[in-house]
Design a protein around this nucleic acid. Structure first.
Lengths: 233, 233
DNA sequence: TCAAAAGTGTTCAGCTTACACCCATGA
DNA sequence: TCATGGGTGTAAGCTGAACACTTTTGA
């Protein structure tokens, strides 16, 4: 990922390509996505993924970073390219190819004041109860969710959705919410996380309904990607 | 993947986006890629991935299929989108975003007469000894190889590179060439392939230097993708 | 009868899964 | 003292890696 560069006021834009970003977070035991409001031609509001045009001298990554910052107030988060959607009729008004990204942000890094300063009015929605979306954005979201679920199983991107400090139970909850799977065994989950050496305990505890839970943080030196186990051969 | 549609002579093209296809095959125990010749401004020849512009009414997939057919003579093969390359300076003459695809073809499906009818003069090159390439096509190839290696481990795409009939030894060779790894154990490889139920024996044999080898073919009803085993959690 | 390549069986270590159990706290 | 949730140990069964072995052909 490149560093972000300033964009001149007078810049020209690519005509056929845009970027859109699927920004996920975990809030109140729910997987949520950030959507912005767009005014339809008839004055009705509808929901859209943040995104927009690409400057002639701007990389795709930078365009995604810039639109994310301007429309949602979120900066400096995990971001990667997802897929490029280019069906001829995906936008009935004009032929536009969309380079989709997905991004992950921890809930404790969301700053309400920055968000509310955005004219696009960014709002969080549960992935499991989505409003009607413009164009093919519902399909983009569906694809992003599939990829997030795959990715979480062979890499440690779940880190990017957790706050600084968390309990192992909270980490397990995160996996269960994203995978929509309540069947993870507590003991085995903890053993695997411990043996993977991806977290370290800190000297404080979180009060709960019963025995207080040890707090952990992610180790700074962790390898984010782990090579998947071979199936074939 | 959509079905291919004819393209009108008078069609308009997108200005900022092109597609390029990395077409792999296995020939003489080597992983090879198909490149086409392009004339430079100074009259020198250089090598390029097949590809080109996208019609205003054409899907990205169709554009990839069309350019592949026109420039290499190959049709009806496995094809999937890879990544979109969009650095501002990747083409110094003009800002162009490139949607890269990768495709796999079995060597016995290559038709020399069709290929030689292509003015682009398609030629096969070993992935392990590449000529100088235009723009950022070397980086695209590198990325395609990485993805092919990952994909071969959690899915059965190696099928797409094999002829109709093959021995288990030949299949093992394919894996070893692609992974650039000579350490696969024969007995374990066979056991895994057999238990995965992805091939079935046919009633003929291939003569070899020693005992003749049983021929196999892939089962028609095979699930191509296998979900990767979880690492986390 | 020997080299070459196909094809099989067995063992052992390490991992996954399931489940039972103990610990610390607040009401 | 009991409910609640945190935290741990262990046995059974499966998987993967290593390697030795048998079989079938042509020269």
């Amino acid at each position: 990922m490149n560093d972000q560069q300033p964009v001149a006021e007078s810049m020209c834009w690519l005509t056929d390509v845009v970027v859109n970003v699927v920004l996920f977070t975990l809030r109140s035991r729910d997987l949520q996505v950030c959507l912005v409001q767009r005014l339809g031609s008839a004055g009705e509001i509808s929901w859209s993924l943040p995104g927009g045009q690409i400057g002639v001298e701007e990389s795709l990554d930078n365009a995604a970073i810039r639109h994310l910052r301007d429309q949602t107030g979120v900066e400096g988060v995990y971001l990667q390219q997802l897929y490029t959607f280019g069906a001829p009729q995906r936008d009935p008004n004009q032929r536009v190819v969309c380079v989709a990204y997905f991004a992950l942000v921890a809930a404790d890094r969301l700053m309400p004041e920055k968000q509310s300063a955005c004219s696009a009015n960014p709002t969080w929605h549960s992935m499991y109860r989505l409003p009607p979306l413009v164009l093919d954005h519902a399909a983009i979201l569906e694809y992003a969710l599939t990829r997030l679920r795959y990715k979480i199983e062979y890499s440690a991107v779940a880190f990017e959705l957790m706050p600084e400090e968390f309990t192992l139970r909270e980490l397990q909850d995160a996996y269960m919410v994203i995978l929509n799977d309540q069947k993870l065994d507590k003991a085995n989950f903890r053993k695997k996380i411990r043996e993977a050496r991806i977290v370290e305990p800190i000297n404080s505890y979180r009060a709960t309904g019963g025995r207080p839970a040890r707090l952990y943080r992610f180790r700074a030196d962790v390898q984010l990607e782990t090579k998947a186990r071979r199936i074939f051969p």
